[in-house]
Amino acid sequence: MELFTPSLQIFFFAVLTLSLAMMIYRMIKGPHVLDRIVCIDAIALIVICMMATWELAVGTPYFFDAILVLALVGFLTAVALAKYVERGEIIE
């Protein structure tokens, strides 16, 4: 894609990496387990956004399948972990 110039790619990846670093800081520091679960949910979506930007920058044609799968699995991890913290079991 000629409109997505290399300087624009560097800017996009820098902002996404900075966001990821902020999420990982909160994930290490976060006082409660549920803070970390919130960060897991957000980190999955930021990684998906990095994959989409990578696909546009490099041109690898298979990343959208992985995007679809990760968007489904991230929801399941958040719900299962929240239910485990709440009740102590996942499947009753």
Partner: peptide, 14 residues
Amino acid sequence: PVAAHMIGRAALRK
């Protein structure tokens, strides 16, 4: 919204 609701409800109950 479902995931956020589950996390918020778990936080309130804990």
